[in-house]
């Protein structure tokens, strides 16, 4: 148990400190790196409580894909503008109330969830979803997700699809005058249509139509 506690406190301290550093660090790219460290330590905590599937999915989805795209966007920003004026500039102080409101909301949501969990355990139907020791984490998750909650699962998939289509529609633009490479056209080209032998008269040029 001691080793377990040591690992738990190590990972949670790293998680909390890196979460603070995400907002506090001066360099935006450093913030993203701290965010990645935060994700990794949280997935370690997931694995420690036996939710190995969630931990791995967290690594694959958030660290492997989302954070890479994040980093991608942040690196493209102008390096000179990356000086993070935390609580100092006139401009950034306008955003502080908004941030405070959102964080209070999230805080109360968490309190409601945890409080309900603690004082009204019968609301949450845990008995159905309790995992038997013989079934692995992944199996029990699949058995709940694809049976009882299949409609919720599919609706969330549809929402993601709509968001994706929306993003593509917003960024899509038809560019004119772009020469596109068509593999079929290139491969199916024959000599007869590609080469033309012309009889050129002297002192008169040839007009090629293209």
């Amino acid at each position: 148990m001691i080793a377990h506690a040591i690992f738990f406190y190590t990972f949670s301290i790293i998680a909390v400190v890196s979460a603070i550093m995400v907002t506090a660090s001066k360099n935006t790219v450093h913030s993203v790196f701290f965010l990645i460290l935060d994700f990794i330590s949280i997935s370690c905590l997931f694995i420690m409580i036996g939710a190995e599937f969630l931990g791995m999915i967290m690594l694959i989805v958030y660290v492997g894909a989302v954070a890479v795209l994040f980093l991608f966007v942040v690196m493209m920003l102008n390096v000179a503008q990356q000086k993070n004026q935390w609580f100092s500039g006139q401009q950034s102080s306008r955003h502080i109330p908004v941030g405070l409101i959102i964080s209070t909301l999230i805080f109360f949501e968490i309190i409601i969830v945890i409080g309900g969990w603690k004082y009204k355990p019968e609301i949450f139907d845990i008995n159905n979803s309790v995992s038997q020791a013989s079934i692995s984490n992944t199996h029990s998750l699949g058995q709940i997700l694809y049976t009882d909650y299949i409609h919720v699962f599919q609706i969330s998939g549809m929402i993601l699809l709509v968001a994706m289509v929306g993003a593509i529609v917003l960024t899509f633009r038809q560019r004119l005058g772009v020469k596109r490479q068509s593999y079929i056209k290139q491969i199916s080209r024959e000599r007869a249509e590609g080469v033309e032998v012309l009889e050129v008269q002297s002192n008169k040029g040839v007009k090629l139509d293209d």
Partner: peptide, 25 residues
């Protein structure tokens, strides 16, 4: 011999991109 071995392999190979991004940046 972990239960989610293939996911672990996939996760680690997808983390591999960070070495390159960090070095490049």
């Amino acid at each position: 011999d972990i239960n989610v071995g293939i996911l672990y392999l996939f996760a680690v190979s997808s983390l591999g991109v960070y070495g390159i991004i960090m070095g490049g940046w």
